[in-house]
Amino acid sequence: MSTAAGLLAFGIVHAWSFGREFSEGTITGLFALPTTRTMVAGAKLLVLCLWVFASTMVLTGVAVLLGAVLGYEPTADTFSLAARLAGSTFLTGALAVVGGLVASICRSMLAGIGSAIVMPVLAQVAVLLGLGGWFPFAAPGVWAATVTGGGVFGIQLAALLVMTAGAASATVYSWHRLRL
């Protein structure tokens, strides 16, 4: 559940961060500056990455705390389950980079938000079709739900990371090449 909601929430924030410059018209002010648009886009991605990390830590901490408050005794698996929650949430946040890419390419915040809505839907469809972890948007959720930890292999994780890095690079490149 956290990965589906996370994909939507993180995706919307990524889309807002990049798309707002177009929707609010401030993008013209980011031309003809000693600070390049490449640096601006890179800085946005860095801040979003730190925010996703912080959100992941808070979410995991709250989940553990809530468990304790509700009277669940810590077991030998508690740490590994918390780490699994944190890992899947962070990877979900990383995938949300696609929302910023769509907003940048379409020059529209709404298009980015639309992609953030479509991403979890596609992930659900992929799981229903049996693609599971081979579909990058579904991989964190499948990984989080697979108690034995064998659902998503290293190659699937690598595909997810390659896609995230590719989307981040494409976002920065689109800002570098941008002409209105």
């Binding site: 013209t28 002010g29 000693p34």
Partner: peptide, 27 residues
Amino acid sequence: GHLIDTPLVYPELTVQANLQIAGRLSG
């Protein structure tokens, strides 16, 4: 220095923050 179409002003930021950011972006 330039102002075309829309001012480089972020509504959620204060006057102070907007000007300081503009200064940083301008080098």
